[in-house]
């Protein structure tokens, strides 16, 4: 029976390893980023100027934070309505037929197309198209929002259709038996009952959008000196793109490199909060459906 105990211990350690990894990630990122966070304090978040090569260097992240929020916000406002409608179709109308067997794998496929490929297509197709329609360069919040919407859409569909399916069938019968139509039943009974799951899908979508790197990076233009955008046609930087772009030039041990880690800390905290919220709402099994 010693073998049994050994196996159990081994699997236990494997399970615990996720905790260790998360702590390692947070610990190391924080220890690199902390000096800059301490040195610049709140002005790191609220400063208007990001000039790492100036003397003395300035690390003000506000334009970048606003850039991040506007790109992800736009993405969610495109993806959420489409995603919820699609989830309603898949959960309520599609039945189990051929159509569903076509749509669901295709949706899964879209989730897993490498983000650099999406970014590349954004770069060679979307950006020139936008430039043609609206003038300017095409690199913009709009381009980033569209590409990110394509990336978050399948996640929103998966989680909300799951939430809609989890609504007890009896509610639908009770409503139909009172003479309500199918759509009235969906809108007045099913959607309110699935509300928290749908909300969680949007929160998680927002978290994904904020953390996404390659796809956005390639289409938002990343101005040399970030500024606060005033329209969706402005170029912006986002948190993640700043890290990738400056990582190549930053010197190991410099304040600039530390500032990039500080951005990493901020991203970590945002995603932890998002996941904590979704975990709480969904009762622990966030991605079960996406498998």
């Amino acid at each position: 029976m010693r073998g049994e105990g050994l196996i159990k211990t081994f699997t236990f350690l494997c399970a615990g390893s996720s905790i260790l990894v998360v702590f390692l990630i947070f610990g190391y990122t924080l220890s690199e980023g902390l000096p800059v966070l301490m040195k610049y304090g709140l002005s790191f978040l609220t400063g208007l100027h990001w000039k790492p090569y100036a003397d003395p260097p300035q690390f003000g992240l506000l334009p970048t934070i606003i850039g991040t929020l506007s790109v992800s916000g736009l993405a969610i406002s495109i993806a959420a309505p489409i995603g919820i409608l699609a989830a309603i179709y898949l959960a309520e109308y599609s039945g189990g037929g051929f159509f569903k067997n076509l749509i669901e794998p295709a949706t899964q496929l879209l989730v897993s197309i490498p983000s650099v490929v999406l970014g590349f297509i954004g770069l060679v197709f979307l950006v020139p198209t936008l430039a043609k329609i609206f003038g300017g360069w095409g690199f913009s919040i709009l381009a980033g929002g569209i590409v990110l919407a394509a990336m978050t859409l399948p996640h929103i569909i998966c989680i909300s259709s799951d939430a809609i399916r989890a609504v007890p069938r009896e509610y639908r019968y009770a409503s139909l038996a009172l003479g309500a139509s199918k759509w009235q039943t969906v809108r007045r009974v099913v959607l309110p009952a699935a509300r928290s799951g749908i909300l969680a899908s949007i929160i998680l979508g927002l978290g994904n959008a904020i953390g996404e790197t390659m796809a956005v990076l390639m289409v938002i233009g990343n101005p040399e000196v970030p500024y606060i955008p005033t329209s969706i046609f402005d170029r912006v930087r986002v948190l993640t793109s700043t890290i990738v772009i400056e990582f190549n030039y930053a010197v190991w041990g410099s304040d600039q490199m530390r500032a990039l880690f500080a951005i990493g800390v901020i991203l970590f905290i945002i995603t932890a909060a998002v996941n904590l919220l979704a975990f709480h709402i969904l009762g622990g099994r966030i991605h079960a459906k996406e498998i």
């Binding site: 009896e170 509610y171 019968y173 009770a174 409503s175 038996a177 009172l178 003479g179 009974v189 009952a193």
Partner: peptide, 17 residues
């Protein structure tokens, strides 16, 4: 219309949420 004219009550009480 039929379902409005012919109401139904189920085995388990189903209050809507």
């Amino acid at each position: 219309t039929i379902r409005r004219k012919i109401g139904m009550v189920f085995q388990k009480p189903i209050p809507l949420p």
